[in-house]
């Protein structure tokens, strides 16, 4: 009807970068705070585990097996969460278990994130044949059952922590690849990428300076999902006896070892189980918050 009006947008000052705005919004998000606090607490516990307990998590003392936790009859503050069948302090095992669960998840996600991002960017930026081939790889990867493949490899090669990290890392890149691919596809059609090409920017420069920074939003969201995924996978493998091996300790392993006590000492399953649920829950909260704040349209 008229073309004279120019929309005068009042709102945030223009100087803030999208990343800063997302960060700002994140700090106003309730879920981000709750989840973030829990994760930070667990990270601190993992780092300072030796200072928090006088016990070594793997030292056995058979005479002191199955000491009940402090709230039960005969419990004492000497072993607040009691001891397991081999007399190892349960609190110490819980605190040290956080180390493996978190550390392993972080390392696997670094591996899978690198693989998935590289594949996703390649497929999304170039399209055509590379895209078809990478798509095929993604399909094949999704077709392989994760738990089973990990079990087979670990069982046949022999379980070690590094192998576990490598195997899980090599298995969980699919979501990274899928998300990064579609994000890159969208970016590659934008004008500023086209103009960067037009002024003769080198391909690596476009990829690292223009594309990579602009897909950090979805990348961080996927990373949070995959960290949770890796923790769950490690726990499941350890539960089946083919993940973390003694004397190392992880929460999944603790649940596995306490399985026989389901009838008489269910808390021995509940304690590491609750720790696992709390950690995953916190990661999911932060992940959801990040998804909310990095989606340009906001929560609507």
């Amino acid at each position: 009807m008229n073309n004279m009006t120019t929309s005068a947008q009042d709102g945030a000052p223009v100087s803030l970068s999208p990343g800063r705005i997302a960060l700002r919004r994140a700090f106003r998000h309730g879920g981000f705070w709750i989840g973030g606090t829990i994760i930070l607490a667990i990270i601190l516990i993992a780092i300072f585990a030796p200072l928090l307990t006088p016990y070594d998590p793997s030292v056995q003392s058979l005479s002191k097996g199955f000491v009940p936790p402090v709230w039960a009859k005969d419990g004492s503050w000497l072993h607040p969460l009691g001891t397991d069948n081999l007399g190892r302090d349960y609190l110490a095992r819980l605190l040290y278990g956080a180390r493996i669960s978190l550390g392993l998840a972080l390392l696997t996600v670094i591996i899978s994130g690198t693989i998935g991002t590289a594949m996703g960017i390649t497929a999304g930026y170039w399209g055509g044949w590379p895209d078809m081939i990478i798509n095929f790889f993604i399909t094949v990867r999704l077709t392989l059952p994760v738990v089973l493949v990990a079990l087979v490899v670990v069982a046949l090669i022999g379980s070690s922590l590094w192998l576990l990290i490598l195997v899980i890392g090599l298995l969980l890149w699919d979501r990274f690849a899928i998300v990064v691919r579609s994000a890159t596809q969208q970016l590659a059609q934008r004008e500023y990428i086209t103009s960067a090409r037009a002024i003769g920017s080198s391909t690596p420069r476009i990829l690292f300076r223009e594309i990579l920074p602009n897909i950090t939003g979805p990348l961080v969201v996927v990373a949070s999902i995959e960290i949770a995924h890796a923790i769950l996978l490690e726990a499941a493998l350890s539960f089946l006896g083919l993940g973390v091996q003694p004397p190392d300790v992880s929460w999944g392993l603790m649940v596995a070892e306490a399985k026989a006590q389901l009838l008489f000492r269910p808390w021995m399953i509940a304690i590491p189980g609750a720790a696992l649920v709390l950690l995953i829950f916190a990661i999911n909260l932060v992940g959801d918050a990040l998804r909310d704040v990095t989606t340009p349209e906001g929560k609507a």
Binding site: F239, L262, G273, L276, I280
Partner: peptide
């Protein structure tokens, strides 16, 4: 809850 609960834990 479904996303945070490991299946083996839920089973137990």
């Amino acid at each position: 809850a479904g996303q945070a609960l490991p299946s083996f834990l839920f089973a137990l």
